[in-house]
């Protein structure tokens, strides 16, 4: 495992820990999109089915279980915790997330490496993950006061994607890995969606100002 991959995974892990910490300590999920979190549950369940079919490493297995468990846990808090659920910005989180699921699945049926259940589900999870951040970015744009934890959460999530791109470049050249266009392109699209956010995040950080996105 190379340094980019490890840093990417740690960034992803940290983002989830940060989000759970925000929810548990402040008893608030203000600014967080339930739609995005629900899409992540679908992404992880579809992708990590290979948990049962193939063993890669202890690290791999533990991380998969952590990502499934934490994503379900976050959705549970936002939907059912009697205090937390009242802080959810339901009226602002209006992206109809279920409409992106069928097109992603259809695309996976059409464009994949191998026509097997596992491979199509794996591919579906890549396509869905690429767009899963959209409801969150839209909610963020509508939020007047973005708290630091929410901003940092999204930054870490974006950093994870950017580091994975570097990881693929590294693997392609150093490990002579074969081209994996499906992963690369969906990963590239996913990372590109964060570009605008990154721009304002870094700008606010440099100017020591509170993060604010233009309406």
């Amino acid at each position: 495992m190379n340094i980019f991959r490890l840093a990417g995974d740690m960034s992803h892990l940290l983002s989830v820990i940060l989000l759970l910490l925000k929810i548990r300590t402040t008893k608030s999920c203000a600014g967080i999109s339930l739609k995005t979190q629900e899409l992540y549950v679908v992404v992880f369940l579809a992708r990590y089915l290979n948990l049962f079919t193939r063993y890669y490493s202890f690290y791999n297995t533990v991380m998969k279980l952590v990502f499934i468990a934490t994503s379900v846990c976050i959705v549970w808090y936002m939907r059912f915790h009697k205090v937390v659920k009242q802080t959810y910005n339901k009226d602002l989180d209006t992206f109809r997330h279920y409409v992106v699921i069928p097109p992603c699945f259809l695309l996976a049926l059409l464009v994949h490496h191998e026509f097997t259940v596992m491979e199509v589900l794996w591919t579906f999870s890549l396509y869905l993950e690429a767009v899963a951040i959209l409801p969150q970015l839209i909610l963020l744009q509508r939020t007047r006061n973005i708290d630091n934890l929410t901003g940092n959460y999204i930054f870490l999530l974006g950093a994870y994607r950017a580091l994975y791109l570097l990881n693929w470049i590294y693997r392609f050249f150093m490990e002579k890995a074969q081209a994996r266009w499906i992963s690369w392109i969906s990963g590239l699209v996913q990372t590109a969606l964060y570009a605008d956010f990154f721009y304002y995040y870094i700008k606010s950080w440099k100017n020591n100002e509170k993060l604010k996105l233009p309406a």
Binding site: R5, R54, Y56, M63, F67, Y164, N167, A177, Q178
Partner: peptide, 10 residues
């Protein structure tokens, strides 16, 4: 590296 490249990723 075999066809499962990148499948060890998360």
């Amino acid at each position: 590296i075999n066809a499962d490249t990148l499948k060890d990723e998360l």
